[in-house]
Design a protein around this nucleic acid. Structure first.
Lengths: 211, 211
DNA sequence: GAAATTTGCGAGCGATCGCTCGTATTGTCT
DNA sequence: AGACAATACGAGCGATCGCTCGCAAATTTC
């Protein structure tokens, strides 16, 4: 009878807070988790430490999140939300542009997106075990994938004959890798003039591939 | 006198085994680590479990490796060695080919390389914290980078005017991301005919970018 | 074959982990 | 005001972690 409603570990919140007080607790927990992830890394971010950092007891933590993974998942969701907001806006803004200008803008946006909260982004990208309960990270890429395919489809006139799925895969994967690596591992590439040439190159890569 | 030669956590082996018996122990440990990483993942691969899996005592483990990270680093080194062997061979073999054929071959090789021990490769790529003591993973990419730059340099005649460093960055990052993602997350892309078209597309991406 | 060295062993230490549960506090409703 | 629910607390459980250390066995050296 005691909590027998799920047979495997949860990554979803336990109950949603109804009073204002508890909503503050939940927020504090998520924020504390993000701070700790950045400051100490995934491994050292234990539930006890998270609760302490949030100024909340462990007991309260477990009232709302069944596990550390659930908490991290919440952080991921929030971060992905911010990223997608930036990306979605750019894709809308760009829908009517000729493909070259559009792609240039999208590349620049991808770089910007990686700069939203780079330290957190880096931890999420590099320290979160992507197997087991936390494959949630892939969510972002999947949504980006769909949006980008629609973008390509609406510009089909400017494209050579090509499998849209495949072209999307190639473009999304390449752009993501290039911008991610540049921002997080080659920050020297982003010093004003050099940033512009990087965008030029990435744009050229896409444009000449697509047509 | 007792092992006071380093002031921070080691990832290098402690002493090198002189007798044959101990060399067998070391091998068993590294192999057990690899098996356990694949079967259980990085987190569950504790030193106690590794020793057990190797049929060896924890004490013996710590005679040769000062930490779990050191052991994992040994596994990484071995795996990287195998990959580099494949890649180096291809780069030599390809040196005198025209750039399109060369690139096609290199892309195919990159896919093969990811197939050497895919399960291990996946764990190493996705579960090993890349900050702290274990940034060793980057070693492979750095060596690949240098070799690929030399390759481009020797084909300069077939290239447009371009910053070689930058072009290398773009190519290596893209190829790595495409092949890695295809092999480890989109295995359906590699079913005979589809594999060929993937290679076609990646090759086209590179060739049209470079000239 | 005795002494010295290398190698192997594993119980068990202190620390930390995820997590529960009985209790105290705060808020809501009538 | 009193009753009841929601929220917060934190000591402390059992498990596991990384790792040490004293001792036994195997091997080399003399």
């Amino acid at each position: 009878m005691l909590a027998g409603m799920s047979r495997r570990p949860l990554t979803t919140p336990r109950k949603h807070a109804s009073q204002e007080r508890s909503r503050a607790t939940v927020d504090a927990l998520v924020e504390a988790t993000a701070r700790l992830l950045v400051r100490e890394g995934f491994d050292k971010a234990s539930t006890n430490r998270i609760a302490q950092e949030a100024g909340v007891s462990v007991g309260s933590l477990y009232q709302y999140y069944p596990s550390k993974e659930a908490l991290v998942a919440a952080v991921i969701d929030r971060h992905n939300g911010e990223l997608m907001q930036v990306v979605r806006a750019a894709l809308v803004e760009v829908a009517s542009l000729p493909i070259e200008k559009a792609l240039r803008r999208l590349v620049a946006t991808a770089i910007d997106a990686h700069r939203v909260d780079p330290k957190l982004h880096r931890v999420l990208a590099e320290q979160i075990p992507r197997t087991g309960r936390l494959e949630k990270i892939a969510t972002f890429n999947r949504e980006y994938f769909v949006l980008f395919r629609d973008f390509l489809e609406s510009h089909r006139g400017e494209l050579r004959a090509v499998d849209l799925e495949l072209a999307t895969f190639v473009c999304v994967t390449s752009i993501e890798a290039l911008t991610h690596t540049a921002v997080l591992h080659r920050s020297e590439m982003l010093s004003d003039e050099r940033a512009a040439t990087l965008v030029d190159e990435a744009t050229r890569l896409m444009v000449r591939y697509l047509r």
